[in-house]
């Protein structure tokens, strides 16, 4: 089962300059707040897609059952 720390590291290594705060009560449902310069000038849809893209096909809805996302530009 993935841990919040694991997700945090994956998000931060994939999205340039990202700082992520990931929480989970059960290692199945996650919430991530991601702050990155890479989001500048992008719509929320595009920002959230960048976070989704960190994860592999079938992983969201699978091992990561739910991922709540909030994105911020520093």
């Amino acid at each position: 089962m993935p841990t919040p720390d694991e997700l945090k590291q994956r998000i931060e290594t994939t999205i340039p300059g990202a700082v992520a705060v990931v929480e989970s009560p059960d290692n199945v449902h996650f919430s991530a707040t991601v702050r990155s310069d890479a989001f500048a000038g992008k719509s929320r849809i595009q920002q959230h897609k960048m976070v989704y893209e960190v994860f592999g096909e079938g992983e969201l809805g699978g091992a990561v059952h739910a991922l709540q996302i909030k994105t911020e530009v520093p």
Binding site: R44, H48, Q68
Partner: peptide
Amino acid sequence: SEWPTIPQLFVKGELVGGCDIVTEM
């Protein structure tokens, strides 16, 4: 939509977002 989760809200043919984005908006 290239969006993995449900729900999905479209306005005027454009994907606006899922629960997190719509709630924030």
